[in-house]
């Protein structure tokens, strides 16, 4: 078994209109920029995929990555905790014009909903948001004298993930704080697509060091010198 695919275009093939797409990363840390840009290339060439629901902590920065997807008109709705950034123009303009939807989720609830999606837990209770506008319409229950809000799992048709090392079976490691949501999303998506800085032979990653086991991964493509969102921002790069 070998989960590697030859190039970025092959990696992102099969993502269709209207799908729910999880994208790893917290701000620029862990953002799979090359996979996102390959998906934008696909949209420009074929008109698809569009009407995507994108799950990420944020809603893009500047004119690259998720912001460039929004600018291109591929995104119908964001599910995120913090749709602000150094340069949130892409999302802000569309949101204020009513051209993009937003499901605002407290960050820990977002993480746990994704975890639950990958773990087969349809709903859970959390203290976060109890008594606030964010909890409106959601079931509430009391446990041991405290109030909790019921939240539902979040699953995706596909996930784009940036890893540091991958072996050909899909076992992954991450670099520093670039891990963030990615292990959760890898488990919560039907089709998990990974860009790794280096692809190695099974056995080359110590099993003790594996963060995401290969069972959660479907495709791997090597991007040997991945660009970092923050660095691209500072260079003023726009992916249009």
């Amino acid at each position: 078994m070998d989960k590697t695919v030859p190039d970025l275009a092959a990696a992102v093939s099969g993502i269709e209109d209207g799908m729910v797409l999880m994208v790893g990363g917290f701000g620029g840390s862990g953002a799979p920029i090359e996979l996102i840009h390959a998906l934008i290339d696909c949209f420009k060439a074929t008109g698809s995929p569009k009407n995507l629901t994108v799950v990420n902590n944020n809603a893009g920065n500047g004119r690259i990555g998720i912001a460039a997807m929004i600018d291109a008109g591929m995104v119908a709705k964001m599910i995120c905790s913090f749709p602000r950034s150094a340069d949130p123009r892409a999302f802000t303009e569309k949101y204020l014009a009513g051209d993009i939807g937003l499901e605002l989720v407290p960050q820990g609830t977002l993480a746990e909903r994704i975890r639950a999606g990958g773990a087969g837990i349809p709903a859970f209770y959390t203290p976060a948001s109890y008594g606030t506008d964010v909890a409106k319409g959601k079931p509430v229950a009391e446990f041991d004298g405290k109030h909790y809000v019921q939240e539902r799992w979040l699953k995706a048709d596909a996930a784009l993930i940036k890893a540091e090392l991958a072996d050909t079976l899909g076992n992954l490691t991450y670099r520093k704080a670039a891990r963030n949501f990615s292990p959760l999303m890898a488990a919560a998506a039907k089709l998990t697509i990974v860009q790794a800085t280096r692809i190695v032979t099974p056995g080359d990653i110590d099993p003790e060091q594996v963060v995401t086991p290969g069972i959660f991964v479907n495709r791997i493509v090597e991007v040997a010198e991945p660009r970092q969102e923050e660095a691209l921002m500072r260079e003023g790069v726009a992916y249009v």
Binding site: F26, G27, G28, S29, G30, S85, A86, Q107, G108, L110, A111, E112, I114, R115, Y174, R175, K176, A177, A178, R179, N180, F181, S182, P183, L184, V211, Q228, E229, E230, A231
Partner: peptide, 23 residues
């Protein structure tokens, strides 16, 4: 820039630091 805090500012690690996922 893979080593940032919640405010997206660059940080450093002290000896005995740990990484973990969002959940």
């Amino acid at each position: 820039w893979d080593l940032i805090n919640a405010g997206k500012k660059a940080i450093t690690l002290r000896p005995g630091a740990a990484f973990f996922h969002h959940a």
